[in-house]
Every structure is written in structure tokens, then in C-alpha cells.
Design a protein around this nucleic acid. Structure first.
Lengths: 109, 109
DNA sequence: CAGTATCCACCGGGATACTG
DNA sequence: CAGTATCCCGGTGGATACTG
């Protein structure tokens, strides 16, 4: 068995809820996006600035992924032109995980 | 700024405890190793079997990483020859994070 | 049993330029 | 402002063979 692609990684442990969360929040980018949106909805450019050094390409991809997973919602406005990303209920619920990580990180890292 | 290497990723948000946890548990392998060790100490070969499809090379690397981070301990025994990996206090404390992930995964994924 | 060593495919993601 | 498109580099990790 090979384990090269993301899909195959996903199959590694399909029955385990821990693994499923890891698949989504696994890369630091996605996790940090959710962390940022937990405080308030943000525009594309705000996220771009906050995640210092991320490329537009990567940010776009991660946002699409998270939207596809049902974690975030994309809201388009026309005056002035802007796009805001906010968490869905499903996304907001991740705060429990992120809080646990924050507590752990503060205490042990 | 480039963000290609792991080190650079680490620097992305050095002050954020959430990011620091993500750096360590970010890849599903490491996370699943900790998850496995939370129930009981395990031998190299047991982990190899449990994480279906992982290569010895990768398992070795992840174990070394986690040991270096102070999450796990490597215990060598001679009769019979075997090596057991167990969690340190620091590693055990990760159960809060993993529990949060499990609850979330069960409920939403 | 518990690794080490080497080789190489793959793809994530940076850099850059362009668009509605 | 919020992306899309292309090009290409580098690290992750599988496969395989070997060791104490």
C-alpha cells in the first residue's frame, strides 16, 4: 500500500473521529484560519495579512477546502466590493478543540 | 518571504500556543501515535501494525521527533529484546486535545 | 525485533503575473 | 479587492535492501 496522496492518508483511519479532525485541521494554515475567524469574520486581505507570508494561492485553496467541509461561509458584498469569511455552526464548534490546544500550548510548550 | 521548510512554518506564528501544538500534532501520523499510546505503551512493531501502511522510515522519524519534543519515552528491554514507547507527562496531557478532537469528530464529521 | 540507508516519485505551496 | 493561472522548487515519505 502506498500512502502518498491526501486521499490515501484520509483512508488511513476512516473510522476514527480523531483522524478525521486531523485531516481537516492537520495543516497549520487551516487551523490558523479557523483560529482567526473565531474572534470575528474576516476579509480575504485581512487573513492574508494575519497569516504572515501565506501566498494568495494557498489561502484561496485552504478557504475553498474549509468551505467545502462546511466549516466556513463565504459572504460577498458589493458596496464596497469585499468578501467576508465567517464560521458556520460546524466551524464555530471547533473552538473546543482550539481551546484545548491553546491551554496545552500555554502550559507545556 | 518563503515558507517552504518546516522551520519557516514554525516561525509563522511563534507566539501562538495553538500554532505550536499544530506544529507537533499537525501531521496525522504523530497524532495517531499519541492517540495509540494514550491507551497503553506500545512496541515499535505494534505501532507499525496499528498505523496501517506506514513505512518503517516514517514511523522511526515520527517517533524520534516526538521523543525529541518530550512527548514520548523510548524504553529498551533485553529479555526478550524489544522496545516500548510510552507517553511522558507532557505527552499524556495531550489527551485533553485528543478528547476534544474525538468529541468534535463524532458529533460533526 | 527494531531499526538504518539509499533512492526517487509526488505534490504542496512559493513566486510572479494577470483579471473582473 | 479578491482572486486565477502558470511555473517550478524542495521536502515528505513510500519501497526496498540491509544490520545488530
Amino acid at each position: 500500500m502506498t500512502l502518498r496522496t491526501a486521499q490515501q492518508k484520509k483512508d488511513l483511519c476512516p473510522g476514527c473521529p480523531v483522524a478525521r479532525v486531523a485531516d481537516i485541521l492537520g495543516d497549520s494554515c487551516s487551523l490558523l484560519i479557523v483560529r482567526d475567524l473565531l474572534s470575528t469574520p474576516q476579509r480575504f486581505s485581512q487573513l492574508e495579512t494575519s497569516l504572515r507570508g501565506i501566498s494568495t494561492r494557498t489561502l484561496t485553496n485552504k478557504l475553498k477546502q474549509l468551505e467545502h467541509e462546511g466549516m466556513i461561509k463565504r459572504n460577498e458584498y458589493t458596496k464596497p466590493q469585499r468578501v467576508e469569511y465567517s464560521l458556520t455552526k460546524k466551524g464555530e464548534a471547533l473552538h473546543t478543540v482550539i481551546d484545548a490546544m491553546r491551554s496545552y500550548g500555554k502550559k507545556y510548550l
